[in-house]
């Protein structure tokens, strides 16, 4: 499927900054305190970072992040277990086991990343919303808008919420009479995951209440993600329609089609 991209990539190479940072720490410590110390610190950093992946898994039930966490723990343990063997090969201990688990989990993480299983899909949802909008006009306004209606039972809604969360499409807030789907772009997810951000009002969201009413709010920052000043009214309506369509597919048990639609956009899989 060929189509004209309507959104800009945000921090596409952000994912590369973290490995560079870790390498910097490693070589910095290595040059001052020696290689064993650098390995110990690197191991500690990996084990520490794995807590974020564990939290992400716990909050989203996305199994991919469990694999990422295992990879990070494995690398951490490898870094901690290896230094004693630098001078005395007999002190290898469990290092060979950690080498195997590290390689195995690294391949798994690579596979998951390439297949977009570890990426928040906010931008893909924006792209889908922008797809049918052709009109332009600078008419942004910072207020939510009703964006249609659908029929949904509580059971269907819960199933949909679980699907959306575990596939990293949106971060879901449950309220008294509705579910609010916050659309984080890659890199903007961690304040929610770590529980540092509990108020979604200054983010882009789609809400569906138990009567099936759909409301949409798009922030100015996210609106500027579009390459053109697309008609804001139509973008909001289209975003609502995207979620209504997703919900209908979920009700019909065709969740895989939702993922297929987003994958078909062929956006950059990492980041």
């Amino acid at each position: 499927m060929f189509f004209e991209r309507k959104t800009k990539d945000k921090n596409q190479w952000q994912f590369i900054i973290y490995p560079i940072g870790v390498m910097g720490i490693f070589f910095g410590i290595g040059s001052f305190f020696g290689l064993p110390a650098a390995f110990y610190v690197l191991g500690g950093v990996f084990i520490l970072i794995s807590s974020i992946s564990f939290i992400t898994f716990w909050r989203t039930q996305n199994v991919g992040f469990l694999v990422v966490a295992l990879f990070q723990v494995s690398v951490g343990l490898l870094c901690i277990s290896a230094p004693p063997a630098f001078d005395d090969k007999s002190q290898l201990g469990l290092t060979p086991v950690f080498i195997v688990t590290t390689y195995a989990s690294m391949i798994a993480v690579f596979y998951l990343a390439i297949n977009r299983r570890l990426k928040w899909r906010g931008q893909e949802v924006f792209e889908l919303a922008a797809l049918p909008v052709e009109d332009t006009g600078n008419n942004y306004t910072a207020r939510p808008r009703p964006a249609g209606q659908t029929e949904v039972s509580r059971t269907e809604m819960i199933r949909f919420v679980n699907f959306i969360t575990s596939n990293l499409i949106a971060f879901v807030f449950r309220e008294e009479n509705r579910f609010v789907f916050v659309l984080p772009l890659p890199g903007d997810d961690w304040p929610y995951l770590l529980g540092l951000k509990k108020n979604y009002l200054d983010d882009t969201w789609v809400a569906i209440d138990f009567d099936g009413n759909v409301s949409v709010n798009i922030t100015e920052e996210d609106y500027l993600l579009f390459k053109q000043d697309l008609n804001f009214d139509q973008v909001c309506e289209s975003l609502g329609n995207v979620f209504i369509e997703f919900l209908e597919l979920s009700k019909a048990g065709k969740e895989s089609q939702i993922i297929d639609r987003m994958n078909a956009l062929r956006l950059f899989p990492l980041g």
Binding site: N139, P144, E176, A207
Partner: peptide, 19 residues
């Protein structure tokens, strides 16, 4: 309709379906 560049902020109600 809403005016362009209206200098106003609409606070959403707890129910979520109105301001």
């Amino acid at each position: 309709r809403e005016a362009v560049n209206a200098r106003a902020n609409f606070s959403i109600a707890r129910s979520g379906d109105c301001f």
